[in-house]
Nucleic acid binder design. Structure first.
Lengths: 338, 338
DNA sequence: CTGAAAGCGCTAACAT
DNA sequence: ATGTTAGCGCTTTCAG
């Protein structure tokens, strides 16, 4: 008695098969109104038997809530976005909310197109993601009739925004190095025009005080390599630890140190930032680094948009989620495995 | 005269503002039926002015086509999925089709949940993606009332399936090496239980004939490193080229070769597989490798599901999309930059 | 060429 | 406790 025909079963089919009216069927299925327990069971059983599934379009049309949200991202490569998106999807699926993925490639036309599509689909909210915190959304997101949550991106003042706590993350790294007895800590990081790079650097400078030095470059291995060569070629005291702004930079640093026959972690300890496993696990020795908890970021963003879409409150302003120290072997001492 | 209130404008508002009936408004907007050119223009202008946007839910309810598709993926990390998904989204957005992203984490319960949600939302089709070709979908995807396209995953016989042409890709690599005059080519690749690894290896063996040797291990740098050490420690002729099953392996290979003071590409040329830029660009020297054209794969999958959802045909069975050789510096000779 | 009316599948008053 | 009915916003016959 399964659904043999091609037509999808509607609540009308359920009602007919159960010998009740359409509204009783609806009530029984949704537990709304007053329904005889016995009737309810029967209806539900019948619905199951004939393979009834409610049409979300019809529901949404009536309730004015589509139980879907849009994720607008300009991250082409997806190294940050996908783990995040998985987190978002993960919390929302249990609430019956689905996620539209819209990759804008940072193209305003595409972004606009996607935004309109989302609005037309009556999404209950939008999560906007970028890869840098100081980039403006490629499209006007304020004054929308639906809530917007920003992740890794800055929205208008007081908008709900999540990002990793770069400051705390950097402090975590520096404190770890200090605890291991390192005192001449160097910081090699990405471009100065990245807000995240600036915040991490400032946090490092605050923690290390006099003699601390932050070297800005770009987010590449090559830069890490080059920076180390520069530092070890010049006269003066050499660092006994290097805190890197990214795992890729750290990898370059580690390679350069090995080229110079500097022992890791004996002579120099190294900490990265990102916990990008494919990099951090493969350095020799494996890299101690800072994890930004991308999935958790996604969870929080998902919950926030869920609240907002129900008219409930969400943490206004910028919420910075704590980072986590992942200890591997590039810092030595407290012998811990991954 | 823009939409000032909070209520969304409906076609009823358009009709009223333009002084026509609802159906005329609909016809004018969609170019259906016979409408006076002047009326049509007026209606369209008015619609624009008051910020009317059609409700996709209502449309879908009526037309029984939601103009949305679902992408079901079990790729957690997203290295393959996101570029693909971007490709899918890219072709479809221009056709007014949006994409639901569903990450299953390879969990059958989650997959089932997502699948039901997609069906409830009346998606016009589903693209299923895995990271290995020989893994079964975590959920029953055949006998669905909507079309399914498989990418990087094998569906039931005759289902529409896309994946990269591993055989051609491997041949591309080997041919390139041969053209450069290399004759003792070694193959270091991933686990034997990956279909892709087996196909690439077989293609290599077919092309290289006697004396060819394929070493299976895992998809890590470490394995590449280890394999090189093994080969160079044993007696006998050494390879003058190494074709690797992945860029990560290639990176390990390159590092190991450098440790052994073997010159690249002079003594040994190296080719990778994946063109995973973060790896391939950062090896020293940068890696010549095989690109699987993930975005194009996404394009094709998107177009296929689009056709199928309209009742039009799509290439049945397995379609293998050609890979592309990306020449960098790890093979030397025909001096080309990236 | 335009308008009135039916109805997509569902829920929520309101009757019964 | 259950059934009847009126829409949600839109497209689409079918009359005028």
């Amino acid at each position: 008695m399964k659904n043999t025909g091609d037509r999808r079963r509607t609540i009308y089919d359920v009602a007919k098969a159960a010998g009740v009216s359409i509204s009783t069927a609806s009530n029984a299925l949704n537990g709304t109104g007053r329904t005889n327990a016995e009737t309810r069971e029967r209806v539900r059983r019948v619905a199951e038997e004939i393979g009834f599934r409610p049409n979300a379009l019809a529901r949404g049309l009536l309730s004015k809530r589509s139980h879907a949200i849009g994720m607008l991202t300009n991250d082409t490569y997806g190294r940050l976005t996908l783990p995040m998106a998985a987190g978002v999807s993960e919390v929302l699926v249990d609430h019956g909310v689905s996620v539209f993925l819209c990759a804008t490639n940072n193209d305003p036309r595409l972004a606009q197109l996607h935004l309109e599509a989302l609005l037309d689909r009556q999404v209950d909210g939008i999560i906007f993601t970028a890869t840098r915190l100081d980039l403006t959304p490629p499209v006007q997101l304020s004054r929308l009739p639906i809530p917007v949550v920003y992740v890794f991106a800055e929205g208008p003042a007081d908008s709900v925004t999540f990002f990793p706590d770069d400051e705390q993350g950097a402090r975590l790294a520096v404190d770890h190095l200090k605890e291991l007895g390192r005192s001449r800590i160097l910081h090699i990081t990405g471009p100065r025009d990245y807000l995240a790079a600036r915040i991490r650097a400032q946090s490092y400078l605050d923690a290390c005080g006099d003699g601390a030095e932050a070297m800005f470059g770009d987010w590449s291995e090559e830069w890490g390599h080059e920076a180390v060569q520069t530092v070890f070629a010049r006269p003066g005291a050499k660092p006994d630890a290097i805190f890197c702004g990214s795992d890729e930079i750290a990898r370059g640093v580690i390679d350069a140190l090995r080229d110079l026959d500097v022992e890791i972690p004996t002579d120099v300890a190294v900490v990265g930032f990102d916990n990008w496993e494919v990099v951090a696990r493969q350095t020799r020795p494996p890299l101690t680094t800072i994890d930004m908890e991308l999935k958790e970021l996604g969870h929080r963003a998902g919950l926030a948009i869920l609240s907002l879409s129900k008219g409930e409150p969400a943490p206004a302003g910028i919420t910075r989620l704590p980072c986590r120290l992942v200890v591997r072997q590039s810092c030595g001492s407290p012998l811990q495995s991954d």
